[in-house]
Amino acid sequence: MSSSDGAFSRWRHSEGAQGLILVSPTFLYALLLLAAPLATIVAISFWTQDYLVMIREFTLANYIRAWTEPLFQTLMLRSVVIAVIVTAATVLLAFPIAYYVSFNVRPERKALWIFLITIPFWTSYLLRVFLWKVILGYNGVLNSGLLGLGLIDEPLTFILYNANAVVITLAHAWAPFAILPIFVALEKIDRALLEAGQDLGESRFTTFLRVTLPLAMPGVVAATLIVFIPTIGDYVTPKLVGGPDGAMISNMIQLQFMKLNNGPLGAALAISGMIIVTAISLIFLWLNRRYLKVRQ
């Protein structure tokens, strides 16, 4: 056996190599489906398109348009605002539910509750969005109900084909994703800590503020990011229930790529969106760094 042979077979059996072999299918898959398209998008965003022909010359023109044209600014801002509202609403509504399941449900029932919370996910996302259309529509469940009860004289129109509808639909869609990490964080809290809080003179409520909430923050941060990051780029919901006033940046990106044959501008908008999401997420993480360091 030659010496290089020996070295290779030794390497092949080392722990590092074993690990590499283990992750390589996943790694290749990720490379193919994530990194490669991303690299393409980044490249395209610096090019220009003339009808169907891609002109491969470096230019910043797409980014300049993406950041300066009022239409794009409005859409981008609206996407961020909607995502922030959806995230806030989702997390604020998810917290009491997670808290209830963690603190008030008997231990043997918790699994059942978590299971029930995930039930909406048994139907497809598209179907759920359509369902909201049925509920919120002009002749929808909500309006007929309220009309029938005599609470309103004519159907409410501010609940469909605008930003409100997008917020309602997305908040519902993401609720379980927010409930689960918060639930897990609450479950990890040693109940003796809450008794210690009260023993040291705090009421139940102030104990919640000084002990429970800070310790639940890792879950809240996770929930916030899980909801915020995909929401800002959501395409289906604004398309179906958003109407013209509820359109978001993804709808514009789709328009650029598919209808207006301006892939480079679409790519620049997409990359800009990613940069904004990353920046906001990093700032958010930085603001919460104190809670994320805690080891329970």
């Binding site: 040693d190 003796a192 008794e195 023993d199 040291l200 003179g201 080891r295």
Partner: peptide, 16 residues
């Protein structure tokens, strides 16, 4: 929280 007692818990319950 209104009693003149304080406790040392078995698990110590140190706030992490």
């Amino acid at each position: 929280n209104k009693r003149p007692t304080n406790m040392v818990f078995q698990s110590y319950a140190i706030f992490p």
